[in-house]
Structure formats: C-alpha cells, structure tokens
C-alpha cells in the first residue's frame, strides 16, 4: 500500500522556487495497478521519486505499507527501498559485463542473501518474465524488450510490495511496449505486487485499474477502469 498525505515538493528557493508537487494526497491499495498521466512538467515523475525515497518531500508524509519514508533514518530508508520498492525506468541500467541472471541476482547479493538461496529465486523470476532461456546472455546480446524484462526481473527478485515504473516502455516500439505492458499486468495479477506506472501513453495507462491525471503538481482527474459487471446477454438473445 502506498499512501501520500498532503505531499508538497518544492525545488529551489525564493522567487525561483518551483512547486513540482502541490498538496497531493492519494492512497493506492495493496495489489492495485494504477497509472499516472499528465503533461510534461506536471510532477508525475517527481511523485515516483518521492515514493521511492530518492528525494524527501518538502512537507507531508509518504507511507509504504504503513512505514514513513520521510521519518526513517538513512539506513532504514535504504533498506526499505532495497526490499520493498522495485523501480524500473526507461533505461534498463543493466551491468554490461554480467549475464542476465547475474544482473538479476545482484540485489540479493547486495542484500546479503545466502548463496544457496540465490539461484532458486533468480530462476523463479526469470521464469515469471519468460526469460529463462536468455539467462546466460549478456545485455548486449539481448533486444531492448528483453533487457527491459531482465530489468523487471531484477526489481522483482527481492519480492517488493511496490513496483514503480517510470516510462518503462519509453525505449520500446509499440508492439514490444504492448507485450511488456501485458507482462507487467500479469506480474501484478500473479505476484500481487502494487504497481504504480508513469506513462505519457494513454493506451498503456489503461492496462491498469485506474488512471490518475496530474496537472501542475496537483491531481486533476481520476478515472476508474475496472470492468463493470456485464449484464446477462442470454436474456437479450431469446
């Protein structure tokens, strides 16, 4: 669960200060898949940075599973980010000298997980994103779409409760973007990880349950997308 209460983020000071996020409040329930859209400069990426704890809010609170990022010590926040928050970006940031499976294993190695446990967990997430057959390949031997799948596997290997995705389809063509979004939806359904996606593409935004539209750092509109119950068609056919 992600909960923002009256969050404001101001960059700079005095007359040149820019209010990127302005008194923003919303709560994403556990296991939900929401998308944030908005024109450039609307503050949507800043929201993800704030939730990931990459930058502190100027005021307000941000809770992840009830835990307040802003009030945590540096070490606590780092541990929370590592274990609870997965983050995927438009650029995949895979280490070029490691194989796909070594890249995926990296967060576990950094977190001091037992060596014996690592291969099983890596194998599991590679299977989830259907990349087991590419485990031994280096990033340069993979397509953009495949690299993005490895990046998502790497973020899922720590079993985060929240997955933040900032324009993850930005460097993929439309058809690979579509495949990727289908998989992200499936990951959400299968693992129950809460997904918050930032995208400028309305088609990809509608893979989620809800679209939040931001303008000038504020919430401008919410659109609920969950399917309404289908009326019985049998009655209409008789």
């Amino acid at each position: 669960m992600i909960e923002l209460s009256q969050v404001t983020k101001t960059f700079g000071e005095g007359e040149t200060a820019v209010r990127a996020v302005d008194d923003l409040s919303f709560r994403v329930p556990r296991g939900a898949f929401w998308a944030i859209m908005g024109p450039s400069g609307s503050g949507k990426s800043t929201v993800l940075h704030l939730i990931a704890g990459l930058t502190p809010p100027t005021s307000g609170s941000i809770l992840i599973d009830g835990f307040d990022m802003a009030r945590a010590t540096e070490a606590e926040a780092a541990a929370l980010r590592r274990r609870r928050v997965g983050y995927i970006l438009q650029t995949f940031n895979l280490l070029p000298f490691l194989t796909a499976e070594e890249n995926v294993a990296m967060p576990l190695v950094l977190d001091g997980v037992r060596d014996g446990e690592i291969p099983g967990r890596v194998g599991e997430v590679l299977e989830l994103v259907r990349m087991s057959h590419r485990a031994k390949h280096k990033p340069t031997e993979l397509s953009g779409g495949e690299q993005q799948l490895i990046a998502i596997a790497r973020s899922l290997v720590v079993k985060p409760s929240v997955l933040l995705a900032d324009e993850p389809t930005g460097s993929l063509d439309r058809s690979r973007g579509r495949d990727f979004m289908g998989l992200l939806r499936e990951v959400n359904d299968v693992t129950g990880v809460t997904v918050l996606l930032v995208t400028h593409d309305p088609v990809f935004a509608t893979y989620g349950d809800k679209v939040l539209r931001m303008v000038d750092g504020k919430l401008d509109q919410e659109v609920e997308l969950t399917e309404p119950p289908v009326p019985s068609r049998a009655a209409a056919s008789s």
Partner: peptide
C-alpha cells in the same frame, strides 16, 4: 469526455 476515452481504450484492450 476524457474519462469516456480512457474507458474506451480499456475496452479496446479487452
């Protein structure tokens, strides 16, 4: 209208 368009996109996907 925007809300209708988003819903329509979601329906196209289904």
């Amino acid at each position: 209208q925007r809300s209708i368009y988003f819903k329509r996109l979601s329906q196209i996907g289904r």
